[in-house]
Every structure is written in structure tokens, then in C-alpha cells.
Amino acid sequence: MTGEEPLIPPEVAARVGTVVARRTGVVDTKEFQRWAASVRDRNPLYFDPEYARAHGYDDVVAPPMFLQHVTLGVADLDELRPDGSAGTGSGNLTFPRCPRRMAGGEDTTFFAPVYGGDVITSERRIHSIEEKRGRSGRFVLVTWKTTYTNQRDEVVAESTTSMIARP
């Protein structure tokens, strides 16, 4: 009957509601331009200051989907999971019975533009950890809520993200 043992360790379940990461990062124009280039997204809002100003911005603006990467930390290569991923931004939640992890989804609302030099603080909280059963069997669904704030304490975005871990 080992198949029906809970997939979520009690010590992990106890962390629902807690803040797992509060981090600050400075937006770097070259970093967001490299990100956009890697998506082959040559939107002039991200590259051409004159174009961006003509469209109501102060300068080239960061691609909205880049924001989630601004506050990533510095990985200690000796602390990575065996699959090479770093768990530091999501609370290092471990599910020994569910080693296969993949992104579940994201839902982000953007409130204000983000520019090079902005100092972004992200605060991520565990919203829920649930065991589910789908077509391919049991899995764990973890949901986080993240708030992104700039140096003027303006909330620039709010995001709900989720991760699926499977046996």
C-alpha cells in the first residue's frame, strides 16, 4: 500500500502561508535586452529609447515577462538539486517521493513599467500545497503568490505561479 502514502511530507505542508523568499535585484538594461534577444523579441520598446519615449515611457522598458527573473539569487553549485535546478527562490520545498518537477502555470498582472536601474523587491509566499490525482496518476501542486515592488514602494506586478511534482 506504499502507493497511497501521502506525497507531501508534513514538514512541507506546515509551510503553507509562509514567506519563502524576499529578494531584491537591480534591473539591468543589457540583461533584459539579452533576454528579449533570446526570445527573438526585437520589440523597439526594449531597445530604442527614442521609440519608447514616443510611446509614453521614460526610456527603454523591461519586457513584462522578464520581471520574474530580476530578483533571482546566486546559486551555490554545491547546493543544487541533482537535476541542476536551484530551489532557493521557491523555499527549497522537497518532495522525496516526487522527484520530477515541472512548471504548472503563471498568472501575472502588470501595474507599472520597469526600467533599467529600478530596484525590484519580490516577496514570494506559499499559497497552497495540494495532492491531486490526474490522468497520469498522483501529483503535488504547489502554488506561490509573489508581489514585485520597486524602489518607490509601488507594486509593479503581482503573480501567482505553480509547480507540479510527480513520482
Binding site: E31, W35, L72, G84, S85
Partner: peptide, 11 residues
């Protein structure tokens, strides 16, 4: 390039 731009080490 995308993994580099997003600091993603996932194998």
C-alpha cells in the same frame, strides 16, 4: 541563450 538569460541550470 534563454537558460543563460534566465539563470536556469535545470538539466
Amino acid at each position: 541563450f534563454f537558460s543563460a538569460a534566465t539563470y536556469n541550470g535545470h538539466r
